[in-house]
Nucleic acid binder design. Structure first.
Lengths: 220, 220
DNA sequence: ACAACAGTCTAACGACTATTAGAATGTTGT
DNA sequence: ACAACATTCTAATAGTCGTTAGACTGTTGT
């Protein structure tokens, strides 16, 4: 009797799990966690063609993790809620915690562990507030506008080289981007260090930051 | 250059997602969140034969979400960490939040929303501490011993009928079991109400409770 | 109205996954 | 050593999923 019903319940949750079982879809989710994006942007950013991206988006939409909105000729997708970004953060956190293969791969990209704890996040927040460090958002500006870490400044990676003068040489610069799998902040730090700045990166993006229960800001 | 690397990273996370994409595996995970269990227990509880359960467990083990340990003739599985239980809680929370189909199915099982919020959890904890409510764990006793809500008392559903005398009639009884998909607490409440007790159920199990950042207890 | 464009829908292929049955492994008790 | 037992490993089949290509839909600008 209750067996059929139980199967039904778990089946429903498994639909969400299925949506999370494809690398491309996860990449799309991470991008959407930075803010609303059109299909072609998602396709070019994930290096797939539009048809495939559209197919993946359909799966995500059917699993109710994302929602679509028509904007003129374009169709813009966004996450169905903040909890979806939290789920993504939770998923990759568990994966990095338990899958050695992932740890190895990550270490090849970014040397050293930049995973944050409750305390390091709070101390960063305090230092950012009083201005003793510069929190630097190197993502494209629209993503910064959608949501960013408290007291963060936006200098997109593409503009960093010619806007270096805006940054102080005496303060520590803490760069972040889309999350632990995003390489933009690592590139930014490499450039900054070469020019004599005190810089480091953190693995958090807005999704990880707010999944940790901390507030984010956005341009109204 | 970085595309191949990115694919590798997301691929690793997707492995975990894949493990979460099958109803049976989710059911197994929920059971393991109650404590270590042998293959045959998992098989009978999920109504599958041992071979299939073993196959699913292998997938879970390969995704590093569970670990196995030989205990005599039996092989016992357990979650690879508390964060795995948290991920399961997060997953079904997002599913119940966004999938209407799941909400409908759940309402057919248990009338009324018994999802807890930060405040209701804290107030329950306070009332349990000062003894103004009885928190009742109706799961099998080994699961209670592995971990249970603070100040909870254990009366397994199977023994409830003949141990009714242990419960007070003047205090509210709050029953819980394995989580929002578990029907044991609903059955318990039905029985208690019929006998004139003031009883209600909550959707939380130990996984949901501790995912909310609250402490659990266990018999040492 | 028509062309250009962004994206979806449909169909089809190969690759992967769930499930089942049968043989094999490791452990316990005699 | 041997039988009983719990579980895994291997092989096979049916069904599902990712990916691709071609036809189709809705919107904009002329």
């Amino acid at each position: 009797m209750s067996r059929a019903l139980k199967d039904l319940l778990y089946e429903q949750v498994a639909r969400v799990g299925k949506a999370l079982s494809s690398p491309k879809r996860l990449e799309i989710l991470e991008l959407l966690a930075q803010g609303e994006k059109t299909v072609d942007v998602l396709a070019t950013e994930t290096a797939t063609d539009i048809k495939l991206a559209s197919a993946h988006l359909r799966v995500l939409k059917e699993s109710r993790l994302v929602e679509a909105r028509r904007d003129g000729r374009f169709i813009a997708y966004r996450l169905a809620g903040d909890d979806v970004a939290g789920l993504w953060a939770n998923l990759h956190s568990v994966a990095t915690e338990h899958r050695v293969e992932l740890q190895v791969a990550l270490n090849r990209v970014v040397a050293g562990p930049e995973r944050l704890t409750e305390e390091t996040r709070l101390s960063l927040l305090a230092k950012a507030k009083k201005g003793s460090v510069v929190v630097l958002d190197v993502r494209p500006e629209p993503e910064y506008q959608a949501a960013h870490l408290p007291h963060a400044r936006s200098i997109p990676l593409a503009e960093l080289k010619r806007r270096l003068a805006e940054l102080p040489k005496d303060k520590e610069i803490v760069a972040y981007c889309r999350g632990p799998f995003c390489l933009m902040s690592a590139e930014a730090v490499a450039l900054l260090k070469k020019r004599g700045y005190k810089a480091r990166k953190i693995g958090d993006g807005v999704a990880e930051w707010s999944a940790a229960g901390l507030p984010t800001e956005s341009e109204t």
